[in-house]
Design a protein around this nucleic acid. Structure first.
Length: 884
RNA sequence: GGGGCUGUAGCUCAGCUGGUUAGAGCGUCACGUUGACAUCGUGAAGGUCAUAGGUUCGAGCCCUACCAGCCCCACCA
């Protein structure tokens, strides 16, 4: 152990330690929960990244709050479990594999379902592990022995159990509905998977010839769909079209007569008041068609192209068709006018450029109303708490306006729906076990081709990963989970669905706290995206600056739920912080050679500075702990950053040099104990945020005893709170700052030593005298003289008045009297301003009578002090003026 | 149409249940290598807390209105 510190690099080199430390953690089993009877466990399940994914900063942000909380609770001694895993990501993965096949000139149909699935599993084997390896580089402390995959055996069983239960309860049904169809996915999507984007377009006004020259002009944003028009809808109260209701108009191009119907759906004020009805390709039109028995003509195929019903337009994409139709309408004189129009177009959340088509088809749905009710209830009665609170509204608004969930996807990769159709009698059987014959007639059955929405399985993640539906030990120990942390962008996709699934399947809200975080943005506040090329690769960042710097930059000062701006400059700032800690530790260790710690010295052995740092340290421990308990991770980090850099490094370490280099071995030992005690605490407090460097440094400490840093969380001892002494020491620090200020303004470098003369104010002699050495070390004093309050002020001095004393630096000819007066007058003005403010308050009868007595008293004391200072300052200015 | 967020120093953001003359980092300027660290230290400049009212003894914080920017949901062709 001895001399190990001399091997410490002068500059922190994360690349040399991170991998080694992570291995040590994993080997030690530190990430596995340690059960303790009667002790409440702390559990989080990790939002499973897609197996298709590569680590991006979004993941890094996602893991941070979780790892901080997990590490904190582990250190506190709670049985702590963080469950990792990956998501099969039905559509995303299938798209990747199809792309890979295309490169070989193959389609998935060429392979057939079975071969395609084999191929996808192989793909999963190859790439699925990539992201979990990358996660380790971040330092996530999850229990890899419990890693799960949404399509592994256990989870598939959970999915199937859930599906069958919901079906048996009548909460899953199959039916022909208007759903969102993505022509690129070639599959249905749920409402949540559609993203609306604003698009500039037009409203085309088209004339449909009516009887007796009474034509109808309809306005449409999608002229190509007119090929599937089967009616025109007008408002029943619309005088303009009243005589046409019940009659027919001629559909141009198609040359077919279609009925005019009256329905409230048509708004008289919008467009022309007449709406063309395309029931096969518009959800609203479909509903009107149902009410009025309109024919349904499908003109757009599953691939997004016009089908055979589109006649000569068949085979065109909708956009090609639109152009051609508009052209023909113009030629034939049916196009009345074109109006500019901005509207929202639904796009696929996986294929951003692909417009989603409303499409009528047979799909599977979950009836949502009965499932949403208890999910609303738990939020309202605070069994489920959102941090920050505002996301409860987002959640409730969605739950309260819930619509049935389309769960079937026309894909192969995923959980195949456990429904079987009889070839003979058509009976539909939903079953926990695969069946080959119809239970009703014994005929041959075929399993449903569709698979489930990938979110159907992730909705079960908080308990399926723990072994549900079996009654496992893990279920008993770790369910419900303590906290669920995810980005606010997946509240609907995931969080909400976990809540109602957990409530329905287990009877319990799956977690108590929903801790939300925001999105990572670039330095300009834009979302990071491939197309913008503004993404930051976390792996590159880690290689360059270290994982800890990245981690800290994702939480430091970030309010819960807020978006985070990330830039290299920011990461550098925290890399510098890591280096600061490294060097502070290096300094302490250098001075701990041959030192055997015996614990904190008794209070009476401590210096005023020791008492100050210990007091501030304990305040910091309490505050950081409190913030962590309340999920305010950004604030806790800020607090630590300030304490470490300003209080510990800039002040205490500089002060400690005096004790360390002292002749008196007793003083040296006390200083060593205090340095070690506070540094140990700092490393522990920081460990949840920056685990690598703190673990590495902890290993060097003589009091580590071969333990991992996570073995305990710092505790406070009231015997080491010294608020009064600490306040006195702050007064000393102010005096030191005042001197530094003088020197800076007079351009006197620290290396130019100067005598310091102090005239202490009442009650301040002792702390100032105790700090004599600090004035020498921190303020460049060659000697410190104390003079009595009645003594005359030294001649030709730069001076300042602070709470503790008047201070003088006799600089002889260096003193510029005029400049001195200007500076002192500036101080005077500040003081006068403060006195005026306090007088204003104290002369206000309302303040004196209504404000807390303690506050009034504090204000009075401050006023008295300041008035005293004011007198002295005035006198000093008069003295200087006399010299002029 | 409904809901939400943001507006504080040149930039990025803190600011706890309302109570010291509003803070930090970066940037700028001046000075400084004193035995951990130039990935450093010391100091300085810089703010009518978007705007207008209101509540209060007291408002960056609470209420109302308004301006600006952003997000989510709904989806009138």
């Amino acid at each position: 152990m001895e001399n190990r510190e001399f091997n410490m690099e002068k500059v922190y080199q994360p690349q040399q330690i991170e991998a080694r430390i992570y291995d040590a953690w994993e080997k030690s089993g530190a990430f596995k929960p340690v059960m303790k009877p009667g002790r409440k466990s702390f559990t989080i399940v990790m939002p499973p990244p897609n197996i298709t994914g590569q680590l991006h900063v979004g993941h890094a942000l996602d893991e941070m709050p979780q790892d901080v909380l997990i590490r904190y609770h582990r250190m506190k001694g709670d049985p702590t479990l963080w469950v990792p895993g990956t998501d099969h990501a039905a559509i995303a993965t299938e798209v990747k594999v199809v792309e890979a096949l295309r490169a070989e000139g193959l389609t998935k149909q060429d392979l057939g379902r079975e071969k395609f699935l084999e191929r996808t599993w192989e793909w999963k084997k190859e790439y699925g592990g990539r992201i979990v390896r990358q996660l380790r580089k971040l330092g996530v402390s999850c229990d890899w022995s419990r890693e799960r995959f949404t399509m592994d055996e256990g989870l598939s069983k959970a999915v199937r159990e859930t599906f069958v239960r919901l079906y048996e309860k009548g909460l899953i049904y199959r039916g022909k509905r208007m759903i969102n169809w993505c022509p690129a996915c070639q599959s249905a999507l749920s409402d949540a998977e559609v993203e609306y984007v604003e698009q500039k377009s037009h409203l085309w006004h088209i004339r449909y010839p009516g009887p007796d020259g009474h034509d109808v002009v309809v306005a449409t944003s999608r002229p190509e769909t007119m090929l599937g028009d089967t009616g025109v809808c007008v408002n029943p109260n619309d005088e303009r079209y009243r005589d046409l209701v019940g009659k027919t108009v001629l559909l141009p191009i198609v040359n077919k007569r279609i009925p005019v119907v009256a329905d409230d759906y048509a708004e008289m004020e919008f467009g022309t008041g007449a709406v063309k009805m395309t029931p096969a390709h518009d959800p609203n039109d479909y509903e009107v068609a149902q009410r009025h028995n309109l024919e349904i003509v499908c003109v757009i195929a599953e691939d997004g192209r016009m089908n055979e019903n589109a006649g000569k337009y068949a085979g065109m994409t909708t956009m090609e068709c639109r152009k051609a139709i508009v052209e023909q309408l113009k030629e034939e004189g049916y196009l009345v006018r074109i109006e500019d129009y901005t509207h929202n177009v639904g796009t696929c959340y996986r294929h951003h450029d692909t417009v989603v088509e409303p499409y009528l088809s047979d799909q599977w749905f979950v009836t949502m109303k009965p499932l949403a009710a208890p999910a609303i209830e738990v939020a309202k009665n605070k069994e489920l708490v959102f941090v920050p609170e505002r996301f409860e509204k987002t959640y409730l608004q969605w739950m309260e306006n819930i619509r049935d969930w389309c769960i079937s996807r026309q894909l192969w990769w995923g959980h195949r729906i456990p429904a079987f159709y009889c070839e003979e009698c058509g009976e539909l059987t939903v079953s926990r076990e695969d069946i080959t014959v119809c239970p009703k007639c014994g005929g041959k059955v075929d399993q449903e081709e569709d698979v489930l929405d990938t979110w159907f399985s992730s909705a079960l993640w908080p308990f399926s990963t723990l072994g549900w539906p079996e009654e496992t030990e893990d279920m008993k120990n770790f369910y419900p989970n303590s906290v669920l942390s995810c980005g606010y962008d997946i509240i609907f996709f995931w969080l909400a669905r976990m809540v109602f699934s957990g409530l329905e399947q287990t009877g319990k809200c799956p977690f108590h706290v929903a801790l939300m975080h925001g999105l990572v943005r670039d330095a300009q506040g834009r979302k990071m995206s491939k197309s913008l090329g503004n993404g930051i690769d976390p792996i590159e960042v880690i290689d360059q600056y270290g994982a800890d710097a990245l981690r800290f930059s994702l939480v430091m000062g970030v309010a819960p739920g807020a978006d985070v701006r990330l830039s290299n400059e920011k990461i550098e700032t925290y890399r510098n912080f890591c280096n600061k800690i490294w060097n502070a530790s290096r300094f302490v260790l250098m001075n701990l050679q041959g030192f055997e710690p015996k614990g904190l010295p008794a209070p009476e052995e401590l210096s005023i500075a020791d008492k100050w740092i210990l007091s501030v340290y304990q305040d910091t421990v309490r505050e950081v702990t409190d913030k962590l308990e309340n999920f305010d991770l950004g604030m806790a980090a800020t607090k630590l950053y300030d304490f470490v850099w300003s209080d510990f490094c800039d002040w205490y370490i500089e002060i400690a040099k005096q004790g360390l280099y002292a002749e008196d071995g007793g003083v040296k030992r006390v200083t060593q104990e205090v340095l070690l005690h506070v540094l140990t605490g700092i490393l522990k407090l920081l460990h949840p945020y920056i685990p690598f460097i703190t673990e590495e440094l902890y290993g060097y400490l003589p009091n580590a005893g071969g333990m991992l840093i996570s073995a305990s969380w710092p505790e406070c001892d009231p015997a080491y709170d010294f608020a009064d002494v600490a306040a006195r020491f702050e007064g000393v620090m102010d005096a030191i700052r005042a001197i530094r200020n003088l020197r800076a303004e007079m351009n006197v470098p620290m290396s130019k030593r100067a005598t310091l003369i102090l005239k202490p104010h009442e009650g301040w002699y002792d702390p100032l005298a105790a700090a004599e050495g600090y004035f020498k070390r921190l303020a460049g004093a060659s000697a410190v003289e104390f003079i009595d309050s009645a003594a005359p002020n030294p001649d030709k001095s730069a001076s300042a008045v602070v709470e503790a004393c008047e201070l003088f630096i006799p600089l002889g000819e260096l003193v510029d009297v005029d400049k001195e007066i200007v500076r002192l007058t500036k101080d005077l003005k500040n003081l006068e301003g403060e006195i005026a403010r306090a007088n204003g308050k104290l002369n206000n009868a309302g303040f004196v009578s209504k404000a807390p007595a303690e506050l009034v008293e504090r204000e009075r004391e401050k006023l008295a002090t300041n008035e005293g200072l004011l007198e002295k300052l005035k006198a000093r200015i008069a003295e200087m003026e006399a010299l002029r």
